[in-house]
Design a protein around this nucleic acid. Structure first.
Lengths: 356, 356
DNA sequence: GTCGGTCGTGTAAACGATTCCACGACTCGC
DNA sequence: GCGAGTCGTGGAATCGTTTACACGACCGAC
């Protein structure tokens, strides 16, 4: 592969001049510039990013460590992150933690070894020593979706409180009183918060959230299935199951079906995170939609601000309820947008917002 | 950040010795080794992968350029690729082409600039000059799922001919005679092949595939919707629509619903690529399942063979039919496996195979 | 006509690792 | 006791860039 020296030789100038042309430094004569450009063209020369990074101490690369690539919420997030990063001149390397702290550490470590300029993380747990070190040692970092308390790291996330309240109102209005939740891991912020928001909203309607109505999940489908089976085995099963993410909702749907029961007639179902597929399930699933694309873009902007020396900002965007048939009401015809148009406006899956 | 020099100073040895310890070169005294290790520990030293790559001319990184991250088939593929690569000591950088040749080129270019050791591509088109150059100039490369003809590049893919034949048999058995297909872009191998396999299978049953029954799609949901609308507008609409990928099937389902029609009563639907969600749609969708995980792993093995100087092998694995309710038959209870267990055996979504 | 300034260019020193080569200290065999 | 290995170690070159610095040529101003 041709190097800068070959170009310099071909153009009859020094490597310094070639470099200056490539980085369009002002003081290069028009003549030298055209000769260099011709040589570059002739040799098919492309600068070696590795060497450049070593010298400049920057890779123009962002690391993104997400909890689960198979979760459509996170792929959507990853996609918007890459789009915004590309627009700002950065590349993205994605690491999939698969909800496993050890894998998460593995990816953080390799990304750090590669000297990425900044790290975007949706932490799987409360923070390994490695992660805490990285954050404290000054690696530019931003949390997205989930975060770790007690660190001076900006957080870009969406706040589901109001939407969860809307959901409970919706369910209450449909006559449901025994509401259960499948929670995410307590080590994650989203795992805890969603339960708290739910409990709080229930309280506003004079309803309690008994411990047996809290299923412990891990954001994966299998755990949603198991938690739902346990609910159905209760002497007094809940009338509604609210899954704290979309994969656990899928597992819940499986469990209900496997018993020969029907949604919403026998039991209602709702989920946190709206995804295009929820429009097409049987029945369509009521969900709380996050502005996923905007979240990813805001996270990249915050991180790049941090990297380039501007003060980064934490961002919190509201989530909203999208009511469908899985809780009992027949929704009116709703616009079915399959996916967010590339890099343009939200929302992703559907647009009607229920009023309590 | 501590460098090898700092470690050398701390341990009272030369950088050469530190390097030897780190790469466990045999000729280092036990004493020096322990001192170096202690210094590494004390300083929290991690080797700079950028510098190492520059010197050794290898990055231990694979590039993966896929056509669309939002397509569950490709995320599944990406996940298995990363898993196998990690097991072999490589990292993976994913580039999402979004079915756009220009974006594909962008990613190929940046990956090449970063001097990745090898490239895994599922080409979006027939091959840009850049891609052809890369292949011919000797960059280790393997095609996965789709490929470009006329290049000496190994291909890892699945062969759907038998499964498509099974599908047509299944449809014919259910009494369907007017069968339509939504094709992928003619510039892709999978775009062309699936139509050909379908036409061939129809021929075996004495059925023709008229041009009006071939919809032109681009593997995205929106195009599936439009093609289906066109089918429904025909004087004699088809009885079955076979979508060449899962997203177009989703679009087709939308279009049917939007007209107030029902699947399978008014029109039947089948798809190429099986994904976990197809079990949960209304109705569950009949699909042709590829051994996606095994495809990803085989592709990585082929590429790493190529990189490490062993002769790489092209691999072709069979796809198989998974019959569900969307074509008219009520399937018996089928085992519902939501996702392939991490890095273990196929299959991904469902297991029953229909017999003609 | 000289002086100071600008402009274009080249030389060479980094960046952080790996690795070839040389060299001193031992060991062993005769 | 001496020559030939072996072993552990360090010095220094190298990978492909960027960039500080020096320098010569040219220009305009006095």
């Amino acid at each position: 592969m041709a190097s800068i020296k070959d170009v310099a030789a071909e153009a009859g100038v020094s490597v310094a001049t070639v470099s200056r042309v490539l980085n369009d430094h002002p003081s290069v004569s028009a003549d030298a510039r055209t000769r260099v450009l011709a040589a570059v063209e002739a040799l098919g020369y492309r600068p070696n990013a590795v060497a450049r990074s070593l010298r400049t101490d920057q890779t123009r690369t962002l690391g993104l460590v997400i909890s689960d690539v198979l979760n459509p919420y996170f792929t959507h997030l990853a996609r918007s992150v890459e789009e915004e990063a590309r627009a700002l001149g950065y590349s993205v390397i994605i690491g999939n933690a698969d909800e496993r702290p050890d894998l998460q550490d593995h990816h953080v470590r390799t990304l750090l070894d590669r000297r990425i300029d900044g790290l975007l993380v949706s932490p799987t747990d409360g923070g390994s020593p490695l992660m805490l070190d990285a954050a404290r040692s000054g690696t530019p970092m931003v949390f997205v979706d989930r975060w770790i308390a007690g660190l001076d790291v900006p957080v870009v996330r969406s706040d589901g409180h109001a939407a969860v309240h809307d959901l409970v109102a919706h369910l209450h209005g449909l006559g449901h009183r025994r509401l259960a939740i499948i929670a995410g891991p307590a080590a994650t912020t989203t795992g805890r918060e969603r339960v708290e928001a739910f409990r709080q909203a229930l309280g506003a309607y004079g309803l309690a959230l008994p411990d047996v109505y809290i299923g412990q999940g891990d954001f994966q489908a299998q755990s949603g299935r198991r938690a739902t089976e346990r609910f159905l085995d209760l002497a007094e099963p809940p009338e509604v199951v609210f899954a704290a993410d979309n994969l656990m909702a899928l597992g819940a749907l499986d469990a209900v079906r496997a018993r020969g029961l029907r949604v919403p007639d026998d039991i209602a179902l709702a989920a946190f995170d709206d995804i295009p597929w929820f429009v097409h399930t049987d029945p369509p699933i009521t969900a709380i939609a996050q502005p996923t694309g905007e979240l990813g873009r805001a996270a990249v902007r915050a991180l790049v601000d941090r990297i380039e020396g501007r003060p980064p900002e934490s961002v919190t965007l509201p989530a909203r309820l999208v009511a469908r048939r899985s809780c009992g009401e027949t929704a009116p015809h709703e616009p079915q947008v399959l996916q967010e148009p590339p890099a343009s406006t939200e929302p992703s899956a559907a647009t009607n917002r229920s009023q309590p």
